[in-house]
Design a protein around this nucleic acid. Sequence first.
RNA 1: GCGCCUCUAGCUCAAUGGCAGAGCAACGGACUCUUAAUCCGCAGGUUCUGGGUUCGAAUCCCAGGGGGCGCACCA
Length: 533
Amino acid sequence: MSDDQQRTSTAGGLEDQRRIRADKVAAVRAAGGDPYPDRFARSATSADLHERFGALEPGAETGVVESVAGRVMLRRNMGKLIFLTVQDVTGSLQLFVSKADLGDDGFAAVVEIDLGDWVGATGEVITTRKGELSVKVGSVQLLTKALRPLPDKWRGLSDTDTRYRQRYVDLIVNEEARRTFRVRHQAVRSLRHQLDEEGFVEVETPVLQIEAGGAAARPFVTHHNALDQAMYLRIALELHLKRLVVGGIERVYEIGRVFRNEGISTRHNPEFTMVEVYWALANYDDMMALTERMICRAAQDAIGGYVVAHPDRPGATIDLTPAWPRRKITELITEFTGETVSVHDDVATLRATCDRLEVHFEHWWGAGKLVYAIFDKKVEEQLGHERPMFAYEYPTEVSPLAKPTPGDPDNTDRFELFIGGKELANGYSELNDPVRQRQMFEMEVAAAEHGDIEAARTVDEDYLRALEFGLPPTGGLGVGIDRVAMLLSGQPSIREVILFPTLRPESAEDIRRLAVDAADADDAAEPGEHSGA
RNA sequence: GCGCCUCUAGCUCAAUGGCAGAGCAACGGACUCUUAAUCCGCAGGUUCUGGGUUCGAAUCCCAGGGGGCGCACCA
């Protein structure tokens, strides 16, 4: 490519910095060393040492020798003395490097260390005259050479595109990013512990499915070559987990990735993580209580309290202290819109209400979809800003897998949980009447034929067969893990709690553009034997 | 899909139609107690891409691309 010839010199630029670092790799090899050694016997982490020796007086000498390792984040050269700040997974620690201790050769090797390199060091644990806990280095070893420079040591990396595409760099330099994913991990672990303690069994069900059911969403489509079969990535966990309750696993859950072929926003990623829980002999009332237990414990375990920052309202907080209020959706519609509605109203009346409220509707919608549309567009975003809110009694028409409310077949025993205007959970008493379930599936197929692109296009015959063997009374629940992580970490965007969010692809050519290849390293090791490109 | 905003050195940001700059990082040097070390010096640019307007464009206009936010979509 002629690009190389046209490109002007970049001394001090990225290309130059990487060439200089590649030269150092070659120099280490030329001296018989290994810039990428096999392992390092670390005896203590940064946190270990801060915990054991955090209270020492300035100028203390402990006589304790430890081996530490980490990435070099800061360097302060003082002539014959060098301070390195190294970061490991537990925190940061200072290395005190003296030419008098290391000798000329050892000290010269430390001079070659760059920001971003991984190093291992062994020496006495001391504090400096200013009182900083340090390892007074007796020997130091390069563990991995970094060829690319780190972002600004003080300002870090703030460009969101780069932060998401190069999450590894974000995690190196941004403590906030590390904290967010620690909170997420603790929340997930907590949910799992709570369910395990209550006797729930964790399972894994298929991601690749012949028909994607259990929610209203457009699936991703793929193809299995050997079976010559179109397959779909799952949009929910529900139908397989209820099959397992039929099989006698009375308390079952799965934490899993689901995929929906929809738009991307601060609250939506095409692949996201749900936990779904099914509990035989329980109903939606029990599931609301379980939801509360799970999220409250996650808050305690992840952030140590019930008060969280409101993600979208600076300065405001949300109090998760139980018990959370429970309200019927029709009551909430009246409270927030002033309109009185019911699924028992005729369609014309409800359409007129939608018109007054400027809620869009389609001609094939029945009373249930119209009521739900009003709730969805006008009420949901206003719920849960001070305390979480359970909304319940959802129309049957929008709840094809939920059990009808006793004495009111047009409504179901279903609830959703709202916190900060966002839906975090959805649950119900499960529909276990196979005849009625078949009717609901057939209505969905009809809706699909009317043009509802998210309705199931086929009847899931195997699921109906399972129901015919008898699904006991069962309560079900789905919780959006990403949104729980957003809530507990205080992050306003789902991309901040997903390590590698979905983005448009980056050109591989751009990434590779300045890659250091073997020829560069050879040139550096044996200058003069190659003519250069 | 639509609207608004945004893209300048490896990173963080200036330059509002008139010489493309700073800090950090890099490079050369001084320094045995620093804490974003300090000090001296030096270098680094496809101003996202392609057109256009203009004596002159990072800046204005058009088209395209990346990103952000909002809307739409999202039981």
